[in-house]
Write a protein that binds this DNA or RNA. Structure first.
Length: 407
RNA sequence: GGAGGGGUGGCCGAGCGGUCAAUGGCAGCAGACUGUAAAUCUGCCGGGUUUUCCCUACGUUGGUUCAAAUCCAACCCCCUCCA
């Protein structure tokens, strides 16, 4: 359908919309008045990763179209663990871990959203505020009676586990109830009308809408984004080294930039729309580039996305390092580095720079011709570097480059 | 509580007394070809060590044996059915 509201029109044009509970109703509402919409984030790790980026960008578009983003930190729900999309239970995190993670995650949002007290300023709320104080019996009487087990069993998050004969604890089984309760509580406390999330959250979102309608008579809306996979079907945001973290203390600016620079051809257009603010006609132009020229589009993508998450300076530095390293074959300043003095076995340098997980792997790398020192291929596993006064460039394969510098 | 089935490397999944660091698949890494892409082909893929050597590993702990992922016992956890 064609949306009248700027918000939905934008999301639609950029490929954010997968499912919508009441497209017409939400469109009318968003066209008529500023709305408050929320997305919840788990605090299971000290940083969000690029898999969360779709959600964050959606809040950004919300704010840019004149609405108010509400970021929910799952301080309470993380103590339960969301079974959605998982076939095994999460480890239970300690409260201290959760608090530390939450503090670490918060900072990222400030790069994407403007927080404050104004009408369209974003706010951040911890659902522990109301979940921690819940009393069991009163909660069951108020909320629990609106959930039928029969129906809960049909939700994907539960069904998947049951079908695969994998355990689902009662603790986890309650997650969807608490998330539904969140939505209602946000409606009560802050007048939030819309919950957004990944497609795996559909069930949880619908539950919240239903619950609020029954108890409060309020009309709420839900919107989910498509599950994001790369062109070859892999889940977004996982690389060899693990997740692609948004926090810079978890992943260097350069590596973050490189992740985007290495986007598959087929994904470039989609990613530009989802993860950057570039105008659509500009994206159409970039997307149309064929052959080797699409590399230009990838650089634009990497620059734009890195600027958002890490700042313009970080993006420029990473881009410059990449240019020097890959196009000139020299070395940029942003590369991973290692200091040493005197004699350093190449194997140790490779391990020290993080290019190999063990010495055995480093040896293997050398044996197979993947290791280079100052651009020169080394096949001697026992090669020893002599660190004098200049830095030495170490390469592992075509993509990993680093520097060993004198101490 | 009872009966049965099961817990193997990042994941899936074989093995069921030596020839097992453990078949196969996926994922991953490197090489060739390229465009820091994809596809394809080749090699590698527990750790250490200049190597037919040592460590660690098949839920946990003990035991049998010259020898155990493989047999036995106890325990822990999971699944199914019964109560």
């Amino acid at each position: 359908m064609t949306f009248r509201s700027e918000f939905l029109a934008r999301l639609e044009a950029r490929g954010f919309i997968h499912q919508l509970t009441d497209a017409q109703g939400l469109d009318d509402l968003a066209a008529r008045e500023p709305i408050r919409a929320y997305i919840g984030f788990d605090c299971t790790a000290p940083s969000l990763h690029v898999g969360h980026l779709t959600q964050i960008m959606m809040l950004r578009h919300l704010q840019q179209s004149g609405h108010k983003p509400v970021v929910i930190m799952g301080g309470g729900t993380t103590r339960i663990g969301d079974p959605s999309g998982r076939d095994t239970s999460r480890m239970l995190l300690s409260d201290a871990d959760i608090a530390a993670n939450m503090a670490s995650i918060k900072a990222v949002f400030e790069r994407f959203l403007t927080f404050g007290d104004g009408p369209t300023d974003a706010i951040m709320i911890n659902n522990a505020d109301w979940l921690d104080g819940l009393e069991y019996i009163p909660f069951l009487r108020e909320v629990g009676r609106h959930f039928s087990i029969n129906r809960m069993l049909t939700f994907d998050s539960v069904k998947l586990r049951l079908d695969r004969e994998q355990p689902l604890t009662f603790l986890e089984f309650n997650y969807m109830i608490l998330q539904a309760y969140d939505f209602m509580e946000l409606y009560r406390r802050h007048g939030v009308r819309l919950q957004m999330g990944g497609s795996d959250q559909w069930g949880n979102i619908v539950n919240g809408i239903e619950l609020t309608r029954r108890i409060e008579g309020g009309e709420l809306f839900g919107l989910t984004t498509p599950l994001l996979t790369t062109a070859d079907g892999a889940k977004m945001g996982k690389t060899a080294g693990g997740a692609v973290w948004l926090n810079e203390d978890q992943l260097s600016h350069y590596d973050y930039w490189q992740f985007w620079r290495n986007t598959h051809d087929a994904d470039v257009g989609r990613f530009l729309k989802l993860f950057t603010d570039l105008p659509l006609d500009e994206i159409a132009r970039l997307e149309a580039l064929g052959g080797a020229e699409i590399n230009e589009a990838k650089k634009v993508l990497a620059n734009a996305v890195t600027t958002l998450a890490r700042g313009a300076e970080a993006a420029e530095a990473a881009a410059e390092t990449a240019r020097r390293t890959f196009e000139e074959g020299t070395a940029g300043t942003d590369l991973p580095r290692l200091t040493a003095s005197g004699a350093l076995p190449l194997v140790d340098a490779l391990v020290g720079l993080g290019f190999a997980a063990s010495k055995g792997e480093a040896r293997r790398l050398i044996k197979q011709g993947g290791a280079r020192v100052d651009g020169e291929k080394i096949v001697d596993e026992a090669h020893v570097l002599t660190i004098g006064n200049g830095s030495v460039k170490i390469s592992a394969g075509k993509k990993h480059h680093g520097l060993v510098e004198p101490a």
